[in-house]
Computed example of a mutant assay.
Amino acid sequence: MQHPLGVILAGGLATRMGGGDKGLLSLGGETLLGRVIGRLEPQVAALALNANGDSGRFAGLGLPVLADSVAGYAGPLAGVLAGLDWAAAQGAESIVTAAADTPFFPEDLVPRLLLAGEGMAHPLVLAATREGGRLNRHPTFGLWPVALRDDLRAALEGGLRKVVLWTDGHGGRVAEFPTAPFDPFFNVNTPEDLAEAERLAG
């Protein structure tokens, strides 16, 4: 299997942070997005950013900016579809997504997703962690096959929004990640989260 392309999902509305782009918030002298790029770029063949509105605000990043093709902020799956369409145009077979507000995700995210997808005709894998006995899937962190993009488009046009409903329908797997010393998928939704991220980064 080819090395996947990477897509950073930054298409949300950041309402709990008061709107605007969470990814452009500063954390330890670097933007959240800068930290995410620094973690994902070494793991993928090429990188793009899924974001809506004026793409010029990300011009300094030097990345392709992909807008949702499904109207009305349809959630992470719309960003995944935008990434799959971009990857298809590059002749790629798959993408790996990461959220723009999750600065500590694993530096071995991509190899572990690929390992979990071995043997699948169309590898489809979500990252997961375990809390107590409960498995928590992280729907913005996944390996997605270009081969299923038209199926995803049809599902979105039919009103589907819940990531796991779609992945479960295609026999999606999980790659489980450890949560020590802290949950690597901790994401910044509120000013309190940003303060906690500063503590973790320090």
Rank of each mutant, 00 (worst) to 15 (best):
A147F: 07
E93F: 03
P76A: 15
R35N: 04
V125D: 13
F182G: 07
F105T: 01
L13C: 06
G11P: 02
P106E: 13
G19W: 14
L66C: 00
G75A: 11
A175K: 10
T102L: 05
E107M: 14
T31A: 02
A147H: 05
A48C: 03
G19Y: 13
G6P: 00
L115N: 09
K162C: 09
L47T: 01
L40Q: 05
F58P: 00
G60E: 12
G38K: 07
P181M: 10
G60T: 07
N52R: 10
V188N: 06
M1E: 03
D183V: 04
P184V: 06
W86Y: 03
A155N: 10
I8P: 01
V65A: 07
A121P: 03
T129N: 14
S26M: 12
G83H: 03
D54G: 02
W144L: 12
G158D: 05
D108L: 09
W166Q: 04
E107R: 15
E131Y: 14
G12H: 10
A195E: 14
A180V: 08
N189R: 13
L77G: 09
A100E: 04
A48T: 00
P103H: 09
G34I: 00
A154I: 06
V44A: 01
N50V: 02
T97M: 14
R39A: 08
G12W: 06
L84A: 04
R134S: 06
R199W: 13
F182L: 07
E131N: 10
P181V: 10
L165D: 13
D108G: 05
A197Q: 02
N136M: 15
E176L: 15
G12L: 05
V80S: 01
L156W: 02
L9A: 03
T190Y: 07
Q90E: 08
A14F: 12
G23N: 03
A201Q: 11
L61V: 00
L115V: 06
A14I: 04
V44N: 00
E30S: 11
N50C: 06
V174G: 09
H122D: 09
L47I: 04
V65G: 06
G142P: 05
T140F: 15
Q43N: 10
G172D: 01
V96F: 05
L165N: 12
E30I: 08
D150H: 13
G117C: 10
V146M: 02
